[in-house]
Nucleic acid binder design. Structure first.
Lengths: 254, 254
DNA sequence: CGTAAAGCTTTACGTAACGTAAAGGTCAAT
DNA sequence: ATTGACCTTTACGTTACGTAAAGCTTTACG
């Protein structure tokens, strides 16, 4: 059986360019060249191509394969052993690369969480600063420096998780309060739940919670316009409503 | 601090060609070009080169590195992750290659031992054939077909190890016999040891050894010129000497 | 039988990241 | 002024083909 380039290429699953290249580098010459200059391959060439492709699949370079398939006295087993060593060395190199890449990734992620932490610390400090600016004077006058400093200290020592819960509580209080405000009853279940949430929120700031102080704080929300503004932001009257709810919740009235 | 190509190259441990190439592909352009057309690098370029080399050591291609170092908004962590995936894929490919190479080696070594086995079988058959040609007629006449066929059968069934021991014994008999022949006494210890070795050798051919047959065989070594030739090869008179030794060893005389 | 499509040829550029020349200008020192 | 070290640009070689161009041959079809 005889084949032209294309036929042999299809038979072996390679491109015709590949066969011409193999002819060029002398690893697989056609059996003969016909009158029109076409390359004609015979069964011996098919066999040799099979061998070439076999060694190529094992990752050999063509120059090596050339020696293997042209010199019948070539020590194939030794070539395979050496090739194996090369592959092992290459894999070792890859392992080192992978290890280093992973170390770098870990390092960068470390940096990332570090900056995240920094950001988080920044948030807390910013919050404290804002609080001081907005309510500091009034609050310090009312509760004394120690209480306020302790509260700020507690905030600073919060973990990210605690801090997030804290901020989440703030939101929950506002939404719950808004819902409760609609039916207008500070003694309703939902208003009382808002008061309860507010208590939980407070424990994030206060070392020791007591109902009296809670009720006092609620009163201040109404007395001090800055606090009133915070709760009345969405709906006017909310600060008063919260105070009433908390007074019912605590059983104290001042 | 400013550097020319060579200086920066030495500083960073790369070749000046590399720096020119990096300039060419736009990954690291010099800070300025002086009046003579020399590339002049500044500290910023040193930093960038460090970065380039860092990513190069992780196995990145220059095109990738170019993006990483030129675009400050580039997601390095993602690039590293993707790079890691590529490296892992490459290692997997290598693992397959290594596995296939090892399978091929095992297969070839299997073939090798197979051909070794074939060779070995060939040796045995050759030996039997030679024996038949040299001594067949005489022996079959004397001992009968059955005995000879059984002997050949026994030889064919030998393992390689047994066969090698068998051939080794042949040599040992000859050398021991040669030594014994020097002092000329077939009753001497060493001559008797030769006779004993000969008995062992015989048991490789005979199903059941007996002293009478052994003595008879010894006599034949002298009677038949072909056997005589084998033992007299080194020293004339050796066949007779062996016969005498065996006759003493067995206590039989025919 | 003419023509178009398919197949063949050679030549040659592109790939990745430089190494290695060659030919020629510049700088510092002798 | 010369020499040697250093600089420049240009360009080829490396691997195993892919891709394209320009041109010839074979095959198929109307």
């Amino acid at each position: 059986m005889e084949y032209t380039v294309q036929k042999l290429a299809q038979l072996a699953g390679v491109s015709s360019r590949t066969l011409r290249y193999y002819d060029e580098i002398g690893i697989l010459n056609p059996a003969r060249i016909n009158a029109s200059g076409y390359r004609i391959y015979g069964p011996a060439e098919v066999d040799r191509l099979q061998q070439i492709l076999f060694y190529k699949e094992l990752g050999f370079r063509l120059e090596q394969i050339k020696q293997i398939v042209t010199d019948p006295g070539f020590d194939r087993t030794r070539a395979l052993q050496e090739h194996r060593q090369q592959l092992l060395a290459e894999r070792k190199r890859l392992d080192v690369l992978i290890h280093n890449v992973e170390k770098t990734i870990a390092f960068m992620e470390g940096k990332q969480t570090m900056t995240d932490k920094d950001k988080f610390e920044g948030f807390k400090e910013q919050l404290i600063e804002e609080n001081e600016k907005k309510y500091g004077e009034e609050i310090r006058a009312k509760y004394g420096d120690e209480v306020v400093d302790r509260s700020n200290e507690k905030l600073k020592n919060m973990t990210q998780e605690q801090f997030e819960k804290f901020k989440h509580l703030e939101k929950e209080i506002k939404t719950t309060l808004a819902k409760a405000f609609k039916n207008g009853d500070p003694a309703s279940d939902i208003a009382q739940r808002a008061a309860h949430l507010h208590k939980q929120w407070l424990t994030h700031c206060w070392d020791n919670y007591n109902k009296e102080a809670h009720a006092g704080l609620a009163q201040m929300y109404v007395d001090d316009p800055r606090f009133t503004a915070y709760y009345d932001e969405e709906q006017p009257g909310m600060a008063k409503f919260l105070r009433d709810a908390i007074h019912i919740y605590t059983g104290f009235k001042r």
